[in-house]
Write a protein that binds this DNA or RNA. Structure first.
Length: 715
RNA sequence: GCGCGCAUAGCUCAGUUGGUAGAGCGCUUCGUUGACAUCGAAGAGGUCUAUGGUUCGAGUCCAUAUGCGCGCACCA
């Protein structure tokens, strides 16, 4: 044994041995003996478009649970997978294209899809290797990908089932559209940014009295071509007499009516609002309520269209400038508030302003789904840890809006929906859903179909991940519902809540019994890690320098449940030192064991020191199991840390040292027994070093995972 | 506006059945004779944000306040 533990010498070999000996795989014979307890976790599938970051390393909590249950002798499954990550991946890929001076418009959709496919496959295998380096006890033979044919089939089945039950519908609504990325989003993808913008006060002349006018306040003068009304609060004395009079929209000279609606805040601006249903969510609602037409004034490429007269073809931003200029020329601008604080909806990925635009999309009707989901959470059929997140999950389930699942992207699962052309001509717009590509129209039986070219929101497929994976693997009846869903609290509404909704919908059962949430990994001053701040720490670099165990330890040690992790290299070093401590206690025992074989000068007196040691160990062991079973992993780990280092090594080993060196075998054996049991308890946290030392004592072929020590029977 | 979280040693943070305050780093002093200097010993350093309440007893439970962080919603 070296003086210090050198992880790089062992880690790869140890992991290969684990895989080769199928220690992470389920045993099909044992599987059917129902005596065993089942324990399963589905790995949140990392996006197959980039390397792992520290957030992924947080899956160490899953490994801790998995290895703990392996040691308990349960029937264990930790299922690996990868997510095609539709929009995210296409976005990353387009950045690659841009570097080469190209864009998505240079390729037809099939070519683009194939190129992204190759890109993803390469990334996927690199990402999987990184999971291995972290030491994760994943059942690799079962790994799944969200684009596997059988998975896609399940996704289609879910969609059809939802469609048949009226829980998915197609409708023209305003959606959040990113002109740069070329796709729509659901409400969850919108990021609001505080900005100081201009508020323009524009005069709309009365149709009856040309020299009199009504002033509206707006941030978006370029949308005035789409105005179909002007609204005031009916209780507002200044204006209520004007309701149902007409004003004239500049440039297009269209007459629109003044309407009264309570939603208008008399104190805002002038108390008069222009109503543009095609480009504003609130206006869209008002438009529906008052039966107003929808006039879209710019297209999905972000350029003004034929409804804008002389402004046609201009980009939104240019059009705004020019419209304002020309309004000024006509003396129709009353004033401009230059310091208007405003929150603007932006694309969470590219940061550009999102446009509300009317578009036909597929929506999931969420109310009926959330009703059941809420019940499961309230009654704790799904238990949420830490508890405080229960309220948050329930809040989301209560407040979800209908979920837009259509994306205008190439990279993704194509939506299996078809439109009857005949119905389109007859203005009835009928769609049907078909698992296989249909030979003929299921509506009229004769027309040439129109295929939906959109793809699903990635979260629509990942929301089905627990049952889709287990169904396709034939493991559904053993492992569903899964035991634990462990993930970051930041994707609660995107993923966890939706898995609960769709899981219950498809299977009538909860997809998992426990949701365990971990926090974000921040740098040591609490800043979010990001490339732009330059504070990103690469987990693989940490492993190269200090070993996988040290990295793992740093993500667990003294971390509050569900709270963010303040990560620093110093903490990794502390954990590296702890691994070394473990190694050296082992080294002391090992060296003296060999030495004592010659000396044989054993001394039978079992003194008070050993009794104290044994008692203290017992107490800690009991606590350990309480912590582990209560999902308090950080505390279990902290307990082992202080017991092993500051009690076993600093106190007891020092007290026994002389006796052991002089050949007291009883003392040596007592120390060794407790040490080995500690290794076992520690193994879920620090799998490599514990396995390496274990093998020094038990031989190359004996894995700690196959140990049958009674300690894990919890006597 | 609604909701959530945090406030403990110089710094970063642990501390869930309420029972004499912990770790890492940093600091002071000392120690390298075969477990480990990726170490050990000794030590300094805390009215656990404030006020009130429940209790024999509160860092821990309740209420209010202050400060900080976060999520969501609205905004013509």
């Amino acid at each position: 044994m070296d003086k210090n533990y050198q992880p790089a010498k062992f880690e790869n070999q140890i992991y290969e041995d684990w895989v080769r000996n199928r220690l992470f795989e389920i045993d099909p014979v044992r599987l059917k003996k129902k005596k065993k307890k089942y324990f399963s976790i589905i790995l949140p599938p990392p996006n197959a478009n980039a390397d792992l970051h520290l957030g992924h390393a947080m899956y160490v909590y899953e490994d801790i649970m998995i290895r703990y249950h392996l040691l308990l002798g349960d029937q264990v499954l930790w299922l690996p997978g990868a997510d095609h990550a539709g929009f995210e991946t296409q976005f990353v890929f387009e950045k690659h294209l841009k570097k080469q001076g190209k864009s998505r418009f240079d390729f037809d959709s099939e070519t683009l899809y194939r190129m992204i496919w190759e890109f993803v496959i390469e990334n996927k295998s690199r990402m999987e290797n990184q999971l291995r380096r972290l030491g994760f006890a994943l059942a690799w033979s079962k790994k799944k990908f969200t684009l596997d044919e059988d998975i896609v089939k399940i996704v289609y089945e879910t969609f059809k089932k939802l469609f048949d039950k009226g829980l998915v519908y197609r409708d023209e609504k305003l959606i959040n559209y990113c002109v740069g990325c070329g796709t729509s989003f659901s409400d969850l993808e919108v990021v609001y940014k505080e900005e100081v913008t201009r508020l323009y006060y524009i005069r709309y002349s009365f149709a009856s009295r040309k020299d009199d006018y009504l002033t509206v306040a707006t941030t978006r003068p370029e949308t005035l071509f789409g105005d179909v009304a002007v609204a005031v609060n009916p209780k507002d004395r200044r204006y209520h007499d004007l309701i149902s009079q007409e004003v004239i929209i500049p440039f297009v000279e269209r007459r629109v009516r003044v309407i009264g609606d309570d939603f208008v805040d008399p104190d805002f601006g002038t108390g008069v609002v222009k109503i543009t249903p095609a480009h504003d969510f609130k206006d869209f609602e008002i438009g529906k309520k008052h039966n107003l037409p929808l006039i879209r004034v710019f297209d999905f490429d972000g350029r003004l269209n034929k409804h804008t007269d002389e402004f046609e073809g201009l980009s939104i931003f240019k059009a705004r400038k020019l419209v304002v200029q020309k309004l000024k020329d006509r003396n129709l601008i009353e004033k401009i508030d230059e310091n208007y604080h405003h929150r603007i909806a932006t694309c969470y990925k590219c940061g550009k302003i999102l446009e509300p635009l009317p578009k036909e999309q597929w929506f999931v009707r969420v109310k009926p789904l959330t009703a059941k989901a809420k019940k499961f959470v309230e009654e704790e059929k799904i238990k949420i840890i830490p508890r405080r997140f229960k309220k948050i999950v329930l809040w989301w389930l209560e407040n979800f809006k209908d979920w837009n699942i259509s994306r205008q992207l190439v990279w993704g699962i194509k939506i299996p929906a078809y439109q009857c052309q005949l119905s389109l001509k007859e203005n009835s717009n009928r769609w049907f859903v078909s698992l296989e590509k249909p030979k003929k129209c299921q509506v009229c039986g004769q027309c040439t179909l129109i295929e939906d070219t959109d793809t699903f929101d990635t979260w629509f497929s990942s929301a089905q991940w627990p049952y889709a994976t287990l169904k396709t693997l034939g493991l559904f009846k053993y492992f569903y519902p899964t035991s634990v869903m462990e993930t970051g609290y930041d994707i609660l509404p995107w993923w966890v809540a939706r898995m609960i909704m769709l899981g219950i919908f498809y299977t009538d059962k909860e997809p998992f019994k426990v949701v365990y949430l971990h926090g974000l990994v921040r740098d040591k001053s609490g800043q979010k890690m990001s490339k732009s701040k330059g504070n990103v720490i690469n987990p693989m670099e940490m492993i190269d320098k200090y070993g996988a165990d040290a990295l793992r330890g740093a993500l667990v040690f003294e971390v509050g449940a569900g709270s963010d992790v303040f990560f620093s290299e110093e903490k990794v070093i502390t954990m590296r030192n702890f691994c070394n401590k473990i190694w050296n206690i082992g080294r002391f025992i090992y060296l003296n064991q060999v030495g004592n074989l010659k000396q044989q000068e054993f001394n039978q007196d079992v003194d008070q020191i050993l009794i104290n040691l044994e008692n203290e160990f017992r107490k800690n062991r009991a606590k350990y199991f309480r912590f582990m079973d209560g999902y308090r992993f950080s505390q279990a780990f902290g307990l082992l840390y202080s017991f092993l280092w500051h009690r076993l090594a600093d106190v007891y080993l020092e007290q026994l040292k002389k006796k052991i060196i002089s050949g007291n075998i009883v003392a040596l054996e007592a120390l060794k027994k407790i040490y080995l049991e500690c290794l076992l308890m520690l193994h879920p946290f620090l799998p490599f070093v514990t396995e390496v030392v274990w093998k020094f004592f038990h031989g190359e072929k004996k894995s700690i995972l196959r140990s049958r020590l009674k300690i894990f029977k919890k006597e």
